[in-house]
C-alpha cells in the first residue's frame, strides 16, 4: 500500500506545481489592477504586485520541489 501512495503523491505534483505557480501571478495581477483603479495611481501597484506574485510563484516552486525530495530522506532516517 505504501508504494501505491508514493506514486499517487508524485502524480499529484503534475497539476499542483502548475497551479501553485499560476495562481499567485493571476491573483496578484488582479489585486494590483484593482488597487490601481481604486486609488487612481497609474501602474504603480500593478508593477509591485506583479513582481511580488512572480517571486511568490518561484518560491512555491522551490518549496514544493525541495520538500518532495527531502521527505523520503527524512522518513527513512529516524524511523
Amino acid at each position: 500500500m505504501k508504494k501505491k501512495h508514493e506514486v499517487m503523491k508524485y502524480l499529484s505534483l503534475i497539476t499542483q506545481i502548475g497551479f501553485m505557480m499560476a495562481i499567485p501571478i493571476i491573483g496578484c495581477i488582479l489585486l494590483g489592477s484593482f488597487l490601481d483603479r481604486l486609488l487612481n495611481t497609474r501602474i504603480v501597484f500593478l508593477v509591485i504586485f506583479t513582481i511580488l506574485g512572480t517571486l511568490s510563484a518561484f518560491r512555491n516552486l522551490f518549496v514544493i520541489g525541495l520538500k518532495k525530495v527531502k521527505k523520503p530522506d527524512k522518513k527513512e532516517g529516524p524511523k
Partner: peptide
Amino acid sequence: PLTPLNVIGELANPVSLSFR
C-alpha cells in the same frame, strides 16, 4: 524580506486546491 512571498504562498494553497 521573504515574508510577503510566504504569505501569498500560504494563501495560494487553498485557492489551488479548490480550483483543481
